[in-house]
């Protein structure tokens, strides 16, 4: 019964090691290093990386920017809450004033909606800005299954390139109070 008794020698460091242990440690360590290498490698060669771009922002600033975009590009409204559906230009699209668009689009989370709804174009890229006006929310894009945490006071900016078209739903997957389960948003991607 020696795991519950003192080791045979006080300096346990000097006790011998079995062969399969050495082989197993070598294999496991190699595997750990491969897994480590995969993450930086994916930053260079993979296409799905979360951006590191984030800013501190107040709820009112973020709300104002989102609203400005929604007012400018609204194409219709949907649902009993009259949530606007907006169709903003993508990165590089020509703007009426002759400049090219930076493709900045905004979506805010608040109790209990994702606002506004977005209409995007397939295979074009957008700089998506996300933040929360109140509690923490979870941006879970379905059925693609991309999930991100959305925090108040922080604005995350990431470049997305929808490469499939159709109707996509944003489920809130961070608990945000009693009506958490009603918090759905939409992104439509047109061919």
């Amino acid at each position: 019964m020696s795991a519950i008794l003192p080791p045979p020698e006080r300096i346990w460091w000097n006790l011998p090691v079995g062969k399969e242990e050495i082989v197993w440690i070598a294999l496991s360590l190699t595997w750990c290093l491969i897994m480590f290498a995969m993450m930086p490698l994916w930053h260079f060669y993979g296409k799905q990386n979360l951006s590191n771009e984030a800013y501190r922002i107040t709820a009112s600033q973020f709300e104002a920017r989102t609203k400005a975009m929604a007012d400018q590009y609204e194409v219709r409204t949907e649902s009993a809450m009259n949530i606007p559906v907006v169709h903003p230009p993508a990165i590089g699209d020509a703007l009426p004033n002759g400049e090219t668009s930076t493709g900045d689009v905004y979506m805010l989370g608040r109790l209990w909606q994702w606002w506004p709804m977005l209409e995007l174009e397939k295979d074009k890229s957008y700089r998506l800005h996300l933040s929360s006006l109140d509690w923490q929310h979870g941006f879970s894009l379905q059925p693609i299954n991309i999930n991100m945490q959305v925090l108040p006071d922080y604005e995350m900016v990431l470049t997305i390139t929808p490469d499939t078209s159709g109707e996509f739903t944003i489920v809130c997957n961070e608990y945000c109070g009693i009506n958490h389960h009603t918090m759905l948003g939409k992104i439509y991607v047109k061919e």
């Binding site: 059925p143 739903t169 997957n173 961070e174 958490h180």
Partner: peptide, 23 residues
């Protein structure tokens, strides 16, 4: 793996549907 959220009372989204957003 199919995207079902944790900590979520209604994966059928009946209340959202009654407000006009379906999933």
């Amino acid at each position: 793996t199919l995207g079902v959220p944790r900590r979520h009372w209604d994966m059928g989204f009946a209340d959202a549907a009654s407000m006009g957003i379906k999933f």
